[in-house]
């Protein structure tokens, strides 16, 4: 698709109007979320919700079909020793592994997310990125996690980044599009806010913090800034956008802090896997351990939980 064929209804917003973000103030607000004390049934409810929001992820050069199949098995059977658990929201893999995941998850209501667009750096031509996307969708991906061209964004070439997202969205067809801002490379929260606004206007269904390949990955500060951008976009357009922090969220405690933040920033409507995801690989087992602790009163050894 030629870039000039961008739909008229989708317009690059004036990013000079995007409100500024005070990092000191954001730190203070985050500290307040972290001081919330979540106990008893509200904790159990939160832990189960977290499980259902996980995009179980493996994105390594050494991934094998076997490993992906194991991951899918885990996605379906989180911990059968404990009945009544939800399954995760999605499995997230590279495009070449989508067909493997699709077979392994056949008959289950679990999404197949694929990274695309020359993940993780995004250093390629638009044509390659679109082909990458179409290949993943064709192989059965129901969700596409794309990366933005950070170099172009940082250079101020917002038009390029915007058009690229619009084009990838078009290539996604029915698949949901998550736009990875790679906030660890954007430098400031002002830039994060600007990139969020740009991505939402370009047609992102979700905005996502990180690839997990760059440090820092997701932080609560960055996620709060993106949630506030989502809230303002909703106020202005009535359109809900999903949020996915990814990378570095490996403990239940931290994940609960994220839920508190979501709850107090966007409210109930976003408290479902449809609108919020955790991109994580090791979080699930920590949540399972905490859930077992809540029901039995004691911590079990990590050896009782499958590692895939």
């Amino acid at each position: 698709m030629a870039l000039s064929a961008v739909k008229k209804s989708v317009r690059l917003p004036d990013l000079s109007n995007v409100p500024s973000v005070d990092e000191v103030g954001v730190d203070e607000r985050v500290a307040r979320f972290q001081s919330r004390s979540i106990k008893k049934s509200s904790k159990v409810e939160a832990l189960k919700l977290i499980l259902s929001m996980i995009d179980l992820t493996t994105l390594e050069g050494q991934d094998t079909p076997g490993k992906v199949r194991q991951l899918c098995q885990k996605a379906i059977h989180l911990h059968d020793a404990m009945p009544g658990l939800p399954h995760v929201a999605a499995v997230c893999v590279y495009p070449t592994m989508v067909s493997v995941a699709r077979k392994a998850l056949a008959g289950h209501d679990i999404n197949i997310a694929s990274v695309a667009t020359a993940f993780p750096s995004g250093m390629s031509t638009l044509q390659v990125k679109l082909d990458d996307t179409r290949m993943a969708v064709k192989a059965g991906a129901t969700e596409i996690d794309m990366v933005i061209s950070r170099g172009r964004f940082l250079a101020g070439d917002y038009r390029y980044v915007f058009d690229e997202i619009v084009a990838v969205k078009e290539a996604c067809g029915d698949a949901h599009l998550k736009v990875i801002l790679e906030t660890g490379e954007l430098g400031t929260l002002d830039q994060v806010r600007r990139a969020s606004v740009l991505a939402m206007h370009a047609g992102a269904d979700f905005i996502k913090t990180s690839t997990g390949k760059i440090q820092p990955a997701a932080t609560m500060q960055v996620t709060l800034t993106m949630l506030q951008a989502i809230r303002d976009f909703y106020r202005d357009t009535g359109k809900m956008i999903g949020m996915k922090p990814a990378g570095g969220i490996s403990t239940s405690k931290l994940a609960i802090h994220y839920l508190v933040m979501l709850h107090e920033t966007l409210g109930n409507a976003w408290m479902t896997p449809e609108w919020f995801r955790f991109g994580a690989s090791s979080l699930a087992n920590d949540v399972l351990m905490q859930l077992m602790k809540q029901s039995t009163g004691v911590y079990q050894s990590a050896d009782y939980f499958s590692k895939d």
Binding site: I38, E45, R235, L259, H263, G267, A269, M271
Partner: peptide, 15 residues
């Protein structure tokens, strides 16, 4: 119509 809803749903148990 675009109001956020904070009541109902998940809440915090007494701590």
């Amino acid at each position: 119509e675009n109001k956020l809803a904070f009541d109902g749903g998940w809440g915090y148990d007494p701590a």
